[in-house]
Design a protein around this nucleic acid. Structure first.
Lengths: 166, 166
DNA sequence: AAAGATTGAGTTCTCAATCTTC
DNA sequence: GAAGATTGAGAACTCAATCTTT
């Protein structure tokens, strides 16, 4: 363990060094610009929000094309009630539907409707093209592989901390 | 170059390959978990949203501790009206204030108040500790340097595209 | 007319309370 | 009681319209 100066219970602060600070600001800035650009593209070309797109991605990629709301919640990391409200709206627009769940009467499966599948199939080419143009075309194959490794590692780290701390 | 099937003017779709797809999903997942965790921490320990924190970071880091709303907008990549509404709320809570701008009567400078500076100083240790624990402690110094390089490169790329395409 | 900024209406998200089934 | 899910009220965000100064 590190030797740290722990004064009477107050957690000692390990500030970010210069490199870390720059890296963090660069990351936050990049993400802000990237999502703003992707949102504009999706909205303009497909009339869909990133949130809608993400929901449909998870549904259509899931085995059987169906997920329980709590499974969607885990994948999206949204508030439970945000998932619930969002699904109500998407159902109202005809993009998703519910199917009774025989094993567990507390909830139903959520499924993409034919219209929902059509919507994401229509939206995907433009979205993927934007992701490619804005993100991958600027990276070498080695860097792409690295992004996956680092992102996976950090995601697991956050998971572990969330599991431990609540 | 790839051979792509370009039928009658429709943009040919270059789908993501397996590695790219995994990298992108890993990135999106990581960001979702990371921000969810950071938001919970900030909210629980400092009663502040990430949005509030970001505004105060930019204000306190700016030369003179003041920024015009449009400069904040550029840095945050928020909708212009989001900036406006958010500043009204933060001003109501006493975190920021306005100062007349002599050179340009269309707008005023936004400044962090003493309370605003106190709030971010109180929030920063916990937030920085979380960033370190969840993000940097999982990376080597070389990887940290790489994150900065890649993030900066992508951010510039997005900027350039946004400038070109509107 | 363009740039900087705000407003209001409508939509989406959060927080806490609630409900049902396990 | 815990897990899965919803609800409603209030807060935050978006979009379009507007206003003022340059």
């Amino acid at each position: 363990m590190d030797h740290v100066d722990d004064r009477g219970g107050a957690a000692p602060v390990r500030w970010l060094d210069e490199t870390e600070h720059r890296a963090w600001r660069a990351y936050v800035t990049m993400h802000g610009r990237l999502t703003a650009a992707l949102h504009r593209q999706l909205q303009a070309d497909a009339g869909m929000s990133i949130a809608d797109y993400e929901v449909l991605v998870h549904l259509t990629e899931a085995p059987g094309g169906r997920l329980r709301p709590y499974e969607l919640q885990r994948r999206l990391q949204w508030e439970q009630s945000r998932v619930s409200h969002h699904l109500v709206r998407m159902q109202r627009r005809g993009l998703v539907d519910r199917e009774a769940c025989r094993d567990d009467g507390r909830g139903a499966f959520v499924v993409a409707t034919a219209a929902g599948r059509a919507a994401i199939e229509a939206a995907a080419p433009g979205h993927v093209a934007a992701v490619r143009r804005l993100f991958f075309d600027g990276l070498t194959p080695e860097e792409v592989a690295l992004v996956e490794r680092l992102a996976s590692r950090v995601a697991e780290r956050v998971d572990a901390a969330a599991g431990a701390a609540g």
